[in-house]
Amino acid sequence: MLFSLVVLGVRAAQRRHLEDRILSTWPETAALDPELVRFAGSLAAPALASHCAGCHGGDLHGDPTHGAPDLIDGEWLYGEGRVADIEQTISHGIRSGDHRSRDLADMPGFVLQNPYRRYRIASLKPSEIRDLAAFILQMNGRLPADSAAAARGQALYGSALCYDCHTASAQGDPAIGAPSLRRHAWLYGAGAEQISDVIAYGRSGICPSWSGRLPPATIRAIAIYLHVRSGAS
């Protein structure tokens, strides 16, 4: 009995010590420490299963029907996959209402009368949306049925202000969560219909903020775990 209590006490103290270490070590450095990485895994796995798997799937590979991204494919919508970037997203969420959440841009719905809630931009005709989708498919090595449409789409890419978020080279901007249009990682599905629908009706995915609802050590642990699993280190 006494022995069991001593063992439990020692384990609790070890855990507390590791929690302190995982928080007091600089995030990127912690991800290089095998002991902390192991500990991060033990903290992160149950938290991911109970809080994140609902949207991102039990295997963390995401779900295009929800627009929930794959968390371990090494593609990062926000930031560059550093532990601190991931931690910020987990802590404050995306369009979560938390005033530190990632909420600088949305995907406009170009077929709508008022495509964008943040500032005024012009609507597009359905044919123009089809042209843009053809251009995006072509950029990704998929031959569109109508190559003239892809050429028109390329011109539209500039005039419809797509480049403003996705950049002129369509590589995306991780500072505002604008995905690369060249990486084959499609948040809402890779089919021509899904891509056209995203351009036509827009998207603005949401991730809750976990600050205050998960302990800081668990948030840091999840960030380290995802960073390592995604091969970013």
Partner: peptide, 10 residues
């Protein structure tokens, strides 16, 4: 209001 939004999102 933001805090309410956070609650709603959670």
């Amino acid at each position: 209001q933001s805090q309410i939004a956070v609650d709603a999102t959670s």
